[in-house]
Write a protein that binds this DNA or RNA. Structure first.
Length: 812
RNA sequence: GUGGGUGUGCCGGAGUGGUCAAACGGGACGGACUCAAGAUCCGUUAGCUUAUGCUUACCUAGGUUCAAAUCCUAGCACCCACACCA
C-alpha cells in the first residue's frame, strides 16, 4: 500500500496512449518490423486469471522493449471465442452463447487495458464473428478441393443417456460430465483433415525450428512418431495383408497375429464357428471408454482364420485383440511373444507357443519377453547374424521375393474436426440426395450459425430445421446442411495471419501484408499446446504456402512457453479449491506496475511457480521508493561509478529483455536505482535512461516520471539507450602488486621476529613480483613460488590461499 | 518404458574454473524513528572465533587441476510430457 495514487496515474497514461494510438502497428512504415504475439485466449465468463496476466505480461514486456528499440511492432490481441464453455453456459444458465461470448470479451478487454498491455486494439479479432470464421470455411473448401478434407467413420465418446456426443474433456473420467453415466464409444461419420499428407515435412521440419524449446520439439517428434520398418505381406484366406513391423529380424518367431478389435475388415476374418466368441468380446469392449481401454489387460479372441508366414510358410492363428490400434499401420500386428512384452503377456494368457529367435543371456528367466539385442537362432538361413544385420538381410530377402518393402510409418493420424456442437464454425457442406456431398459455393460464405436453436439435447443445430433445409448448389434440388461444426483448433490454426489484415472482407488476407509481417517473430504461450495447436498451425501454414497465399512454411520463429502459476498451496488454481488469484484485485491494491514488477521478479518466465503475495511488498517498496526519492534527486553530473553501472545495466538488461530473462533484468534495475538514489547528484540524462530501462516492466510510473523530468513526448515510444563499451569498467589505476604485497605482509613482520618470507602466487602473476624490492622494503629474505611449482617449499599449506591479485605467504 | 528437464544457504533464486561463505529479493532477528502500530531507514543472518585464521558448505561418490558450486565419470533424487504405435 502506498500514499501515491497509482490508479490515477495508470488511468491517465492508458488514456493518453490510446488517444495517441501509439501502439498501433503501421503497415506502410519502413521501420524494421517485429511481430510479437501471445496465444489468443478463450474469453471465459470468469474473466482473466493470473495465468492469462502472466502470459500477456511476458509478451507485453517484449513488445514494449522492441518498440523502444525502434521496431515497428505488431502486438495484437484477439479471442478464440468459439467453444464448449459458451455452449455449456447456454445449457446451464440459459444465456445464448453469442451473448455470453460478447460479454466475456468485453470484460476481458477491460481487464487487459487495466493491466496496461500495449495492444494494437484496432486489429482485434474474434473467431466467433462470421467475418472471421467465414475464412475457416473458405480454407476448408480449399482443402476439400484438394482432397484434404474428407469424411470417414470414426469413434466418438457417446453418452447413452444424454444421447449425445461428448468432447474428450467431457469424458475424461470415463463418465459423462453431465449425467455421470458410463461413456461408450460410437461409430459416426466424421470430417477429417488430412494432416498426415504433411507428416514427413512436419516431422523433418522440427529440426529447423532453432528457437523452439527442446522439450516442445521432442514432444512434437514423439507425437508425429516417425518410425522406419518393414511391411511384410502375409497371406490370409487367399488375400495378402500388409503388416508393419520394426522388428523383421524376429519374423521366424511369429506365433500368432492380432487384428484390432475395431478394425473395419475384422469380420472378413471371423469364421462361422468363432462368430459368437468374437461378438461377445466386442460387446464387452463397447462398454469401455477409450481411456479405460488403455489400462485394460491384454485380451483377445481367436477369429478362426490363419495367416501364412511368408518366410517359412507356417500357419499362424489370428486373434482379435483390444491392444492393437486400429488406424495405425494397417491395424494388425505380427506377434512375437518371445521378444515383445505385450505379445508375451497375450501368449501366456492364451497358451500360445513362445518361440525364441534371438539369442539371450543364460540368466534370462523368461518371466518376461527378451527385448534386447542378440544373435539370431531358430531362423534357418539367418542364424548367427546380429539382429541389426538380420533386419537388413531379412527385409532384403522379402523384397527380393516380392513379399515386403521398407516403409516409414507415422503415429500421427488425420485430424478429426467434426464436433456435434453448436458453438463452432459450421462445416460448409450440403448433403444432397442426388449429388451426395456438395461444397457450399465460395460466394455463399459465410454459412452463419443460426441464432434459434434448442440447447441441451444432442446437437443444437439439428433443432433448426429451416436452417438445415437448403438448396443443393449443384442441382438446385433439396439439400440439407451439414450439422457438424469444426473443432476450435481450426480457428486458432491461422489467426495470426488474419491480424495482418483483420478487416478484409474480400479475401482471407492481403498477401503482401502477411508477407511483410509473418512469420511471427516471438510467440508466447503455454506448453500444453505443444502437440495440438502448435502442430495444427504448422500444418495450416504449409497448406496455405502450397496454395501460394504465403511465402513461408513455418509460422513461428521463436517460441516461448511461460511457466505455470500454481496456487499458494501448490495446487492448480481452481474455484473449488478457493486458491484462485485475480490479478485485478492485486493490482488494485498495489498498483499495476507493482504487480507487473512483482510477477517478473519472483518468477522466471519459463518456470512454474507457486503464487504467493508475500514478496509483493518488496516490489511495492521498490517502486514507491523510485517514485518518492525522485523528488529528492539533485541533477548535475554523474560519478564514474554510476556511469559504469548505467552502461553495464543497459548492456545486460537489453540482453535480458531479448531472451525473456526478465527476472535478471529486475535485479539489475534494482541495483541501478539503489545506486542512483545513493548518489549525491546525477545527470538528468542518466535518470531518463534508467526510466527507459524500467519502462517495459513498469510503463505507467516511468511514463509519469519521464513527464516530470519535463519531457513532452511519450517515453513508451522513445529511443532505447545505447551503452558505451568504453565505460563498462572502472578505469583502475594500475595497482602495483608488489606494493600490495608489502602492505599485506608488513604488519605481520613487525609483530614477530622473522627472517624469511615465502610467497605463493598464481602462475600467471609470477613474473610480476619483484622479490628484490620486497626484500629491501621488508628487511628479510623473500622467496617467490608459483602455486603450480611441484618443488615449492610450503610448510603450512599457505599456497592454498593464493588468488589472482592476492598471493599467499608464510613467514619464518 | 521413451523423451525433456532440474538439484545452490531458512525460502525464491543468481553464479559455469581463481577476487565465492556465494549476487538480488523474501523471511527471521536486532537497532533507529514513534506514545504506539504501520511505513521508512540501518545492521545481522554456517560454526569456532578475531586470525593473510581455521573448519564445514552449492544432491552423493570418485576424478582432472596449483585452484571446482562451476569441468569429467558414475550414481541418487525430484519434476514435466507422451505412453499398448508393433
Amino acid at each position: 500500500m502506498s500514499d501515491i495514487d497509482f490508479g490515477k496515474i495508470e488511468k491517465k497514461w492508458q488514456k493518453k496512449w490510446e488517444e495517441a494510438k501509439i501502439f498501433e502497428a503501421r503497415d506502410i512504415a519502413k521501420f524494421e518490423r517485429c511481430y510479437v504475439l501471445e496465444m489468443f485466449p478463450y474469453p471465459s465468463g470468469k474473466g482473466l486469471h493470473i495465468g492469462h496476466a502472466w502470459n500477456f505480461l511476458i509478451g507485453d514486456i517484449l513488445a514494449r522493449y522492441k518498440r523502444l528499440k525502434g521496431f515497428n511492432v505488431l502486438h495484437p490481441m484477439g479471442y478464440d471465442s468459439l467453444g464448449l464453455p459458451a455452449e455449456n453456459a447456454a445449457i446451464k444458465d440459459g444465456i445464448h452463447p453469442k451473448n455470453y461470448t460478447a460479454e466475456s470479451i468485453k470484460n476481458f478487454i477491460n481487464q487487459q487495458k487495466t493491466l496496461g498491455f500495449s495492444y494494437d486494439w484496432s486489429r482485434m479479432i474474434s473467431s466467433a464473428d462470421s467475418s472471421y470464421y467465414r475464412w475457416d470455411q473458405w480454407i476448408f473448401l480449399k482443402m476439400f478441393e484438394k482432397g484434404l478434407a474428407y469424411q470417414k467413420e470414426s469413434n466418438v465418446n457417446w453418452c447413452p443417456s444424454c444421447e449425445t456426443v461428448l468432447a474428450n474433456e467431457q469424458a475424461q473420467t470415463g463418465n459423462c460430465d453431465r449425467c455421470g453415466s458410463k461413456v461408450e464409444t460410437k461409430f459416426l461419420k466424421q470430417w477429417f483433415l488430412k494432416i498426415t499428407d504433411y507428416a514427413d515435412e512436419l516431422y523433418e521440419g522440427i529440426d529447423n525450428l532453432k528457437d523452439w524449446p527442446e522439450r516442445t520439439k521432442a514432444m512434437q517428434k514423439n507425437w508425429i512418431g516417425k518410425s522406419h520398418g518393414t511391411e511384410i505381406k502375409f497371406e490370409i484366406n487367399g488375400k495378402y495383408w500388409n503388416i508393419f513391423t520394426t522388428r523383421p529380424d524376429t519374423l521366424f518367431g511369429v506365433t500368432f497375429m492380432v487384428i484390432s478389435a475395431q478394425h473395419k475388415k475384422l469380420w472378413d476374418l471371423v469364421t462361422d464357428s468363432q462368430k459368437k466368441d468374437v461378438e461377445k468380446f466386442l460387446k464387452k469392449l463397447k462398454s469401455v471408454s477409450e481411456k479405460d481401454l488403455a489400462d485394460m489387460e491384454k485380451e483377445g479372441v481367436f477369429t478362426g482364420s490363419y495367416a501364412i508366414n511368408p518366410i517359412n510358410e507356417e500357419k499362424i492363428p489370428i486373434y482379435a485383440g483390444n491392444f492393437v490400434v486400429a488406424d495405425y499401420a494397417g491395424g494388425m500386428v505380427m506377434a512375437v511373444p518371445a521378444h515383445d512384452q505385450r505379445d508375451f503377456e497375450f501368449a501366456k494368457k492364451y497358451n500360445i507357443e513362445i518361440k525364441q529367435v534371438i539369442g539371450c543371456p543364460k540368466d534370462h528367466d523368461w518371466k518376461r519377453a527378451y527385448t534386447d539385442w542378440g544373435n539370431l537362432v531358430n531362423s534357418p538361413g539367418f542364424n548367427g547374424l546380429k539382429n541389426e544385420e538380420a533386419k537388413k538381410k531379412i527385409t532384403d530377402w522379402l523384397i527380393k521375393n516380392k513379399l515386403g518393402k521398407r516403409v516409414t510409418q507415422f503415429r500421427l493420424r488425420d485430424w478429426g474436426i467434426s464436433r456435434q456442437r453448436y458453438w463452432g464454425t459450421p462445416i460448409p457442406i450440403i448433403h444432397c440426395g442426388k449429388c451426395g456431398i456438395v461444397p457450399v459455393k465460395e460466394k455463399d460464405l459465410p454459412v452463419e450459425l443460426p441464432d434459434k436453436v434448442k440447447f441441451g439435447e444432442g446437437n443444437p443445430l439439428e433443432t433448426n430445421e429451416s436452417w438445415i433445409k437448403t438448396k443443393c448448389p449443384k442441382c438446385k434440388g433439396e439439400g440439407r446442411r451439414e450439422t457438424d461444426t469444426m473443432d476450435t483448433f481450426v480457428n486458432s490454426s491461422w489467426y495470426f495471419m488474419r491480424y495482418c489484415d483483420p478487416q478484409n472482407s474480400k479475401e482471407i488476407f492481403n498477401k503482401n501484408n502477411v508477407k511483410d509481417w509473418c512469420p511471427v517473430d516471438y510467440y508466447v504461450g503455454g506448453s500444453e499446446h505443444a502437440c495440438m495447436h502448435l502442430i495444427y498451425s504448422r500444418f495450416y501454414t504449409k497448406f496455405l504456402a502450397d496454395m501460394k497465399l504465403i511465402n513461408f512454411r513455418e509460422p513461428f520463429n521463436k517460441l516461448f512457453h511461460q511457466g505455470f502459476i500454481y496456487g499458494e498451496d501448490g495446487e492448480k488454481m481452481s474455484k473449488s479449491l478457493g486458491n484462485t488469484v485475480d490479478p485485478l484485485d492485486t493490482s488494485k491494491e498495489y498498483g499495476v506496475d507493482t504487480l507487473r514488477f512483482f510477477l517478473v521478479s519472483v518468477a522466471s518466465p519459463d518456470k512454474d511457480f507457486n503464487w504467493s503475495e508475500k514478496g509483493i511488498s518488496g516490489s511495492s517498496r521498490f517502486l514507491n521508493r523510485v517514485f518518492n526519492d525522485f523528488s529528492n534527486l539533485k541533477f548535475g553530473k554523474d560519478s564514474e561509478k554510476l556511469e559504469v553501472k548505467l552502461n553495464n545495466t543497459i548492456k545486460n538488461v537489453s540482453n535480458y529483455y531479448e531472451t525473456f530473462e526478465y527476472r535478471k533484468a529486475t535485479i539489475e534495475l534494482r541495483e541501478l536505482f539503489d545506486m542512483i538514489f545513493e548518489e549525491k547528484e546525477i545527470s538528468k540524462e542518466t535518470f531518463g535512461k534508467a526510466l527507459k530501462l524500467l519502462n517495459p516492466i513498469c510503463p505507467h510510473i516511468t511514463e509519469e516520471l519521464w513527464s516530470k523530468l519535463g519531457e513532452k513526448e511519450f517515453l513508451s515510444i522513445n529511443e532505447w539507450p545505447d551503452f558505451d563499451s568504453k565505460k563498462l569498467k572502472i578505469k583502475k589505476k594500475e595497482v602495483d602488486l608488489n606494493a600490495k604485497i608489502f602492505d599485506l605482509i608488513n604488519p605481520h613482520v613487525s609483530k614477530g621476529d622473522y627472517k624469511m618470507v615465502y610467497i605463493y602466487t598464481v602462475p600467471f602473476e609470477l613474473d610480476k613480483i619483484n622479490p628484490k624490492f620486497l626484500e629491501d622494503k621488508l628487511g628479510l629474505k623473500a622467496k617467490v613460488f608459483s602455486v603450480a611449482d611441484p618443488n615449492k617449499i610450503d610448510l603450512q599449506n599457505k599456497s592454498k590461499r593464493a588468488r589472482p591479485g592476492m598471493p599467499g605467504f608464510y613467514l619464518e
